[in-house]
Computed example of a mutant assay.
Amino acid sequence: MNFLRQIFSSTSPEAMSAAKAKAQSIIEENAVAVFSKSYCPYCKASKNLLDDLGAKYFLIELDQVDDGAAIQSVLADISGQRTVPNIYIGQKHIGGNSDLQAKKGELKALLKEVGAV
């Protein structure tokens, strides 16, 4: 836990502001946005479901970008959810993998509604 505090407390206010602007821009500019980590099995399950439905989505792997930790931190402020995957459809926070899987029946229609299929 101390390790995590060091990471987040060492992030400057400017970097956090830039990360918040980046996260909000990704959410606003994409019909579907998935904030993920490449090694996360829940993220993989979400991406597989979206892929199976032929969804077009913006994907950012937070473990593969320099500002990933800061973006993940500001997502907690934006959505109240810190964990990944953190999924938005039509600029609305869907939640994580279990939330996405629970919407499986209505997902195709929702994706069509926002122009993501």
Results as ranks from 00 to 15, higher is better:
Ile27Ala: 12
Gln101Arg: 06
Pro85Gly: 02
Phe8Asn: 07
Gly90Ala: 09
Glu14Leu: 12
Val114Trp: 04
Ile71Lys: 10
Ser79Phe: 04
Gly115Ala: 00
Glu14Asn: 13
Gln64Tyr: 00
Ser25Gly: 11
Ile89Gly: 00
Leu110His: 02
Ala15Trp: 11
Ile78Arg: 08
Ser73Cys: 08
Leu4Val: 14
Tyr42Ser: 08
Ala15Thr: 05
Ser36Ile: 03
Pro41Val: 12
Ser9Val: 07
Met1Thr: 11
Ala70Ile: 03
Gln72Leu: 05
Lys92Glu: 15
Gln6Ala: 14
Leu59His: 13
Leu59Glu: 09
Gly96Ile: 10
Asn30Phe: 08
Ile87Thr: 05
Asp51Tyr: 00
Lys108Ser: 03
Lys103Ala: 04
Lys108Gln: 05
Gln72Glu: 06
Cys43Tyr: 10
Gln6Leu: 11
Gln81Leu: 07
Val74Asn: 06
Lys92Val: 11
Ala69His: 15
Ala70Glu: 06
Asn2Val: 11
Lys112Gly: 00
Phe58Gly: 07
Tyr42Gln: 04
Val114Ser: 03
Phe8His: 14
Lys22Glu: 10
Ile60Asn: 06
Asp63Lys: 14
Val34Asn: 12
Ile7Asn: 07
Ser73Phe: 08
Leu59Cys: 15
Ser73Leu: 14
Ser17Asn: 13
Ile89Arg: 08
Ser79Val: 00
Ala19Leu: 11
Ala15His: 13
Leu75Lys: 02
Gly90Trp: 14
Phe35Lys: 07
Tyr42Cys: 02
Ala45Trp: 05
Ala116Met: 00
Pro85Thr: 04
Leu59Arg: 11
Leu107Asn: 01
Asn2Tyr: 03
Asp63Cys: 14
Ala45Asn: 08
Asn48His: 03
Ala109Val: 00
Gln81Thr: 02
Arg82Val: 06
Lys56Gly: 15
His93Glu: 07
Ala33Phe: 10
Gly80Phe: 01
Phe58Glu: 13
Ser10Leu: 09
Asp77Tyr: 07
Ser73Val: 02
Glu29Leu: 06
Ile26Ser: 02
Leu100Trp: 11
Cys43Ala: 13
Gln72Val: 08
Ala70Arg: 01
Ala23Gly: 12
Ser79Ala: 05
Ala55Gly: 10
His93Gln: 04
Leu62Thr: 10
Lys22Val: 04
Asp52Tyr: 05
Val84Ile: 10
Lys44Arg: 03
Ser10Val: 05
Leu49Val: 02
Tyr42Ala: 00
Ile60Asp: 10
Lys37Ala: 06
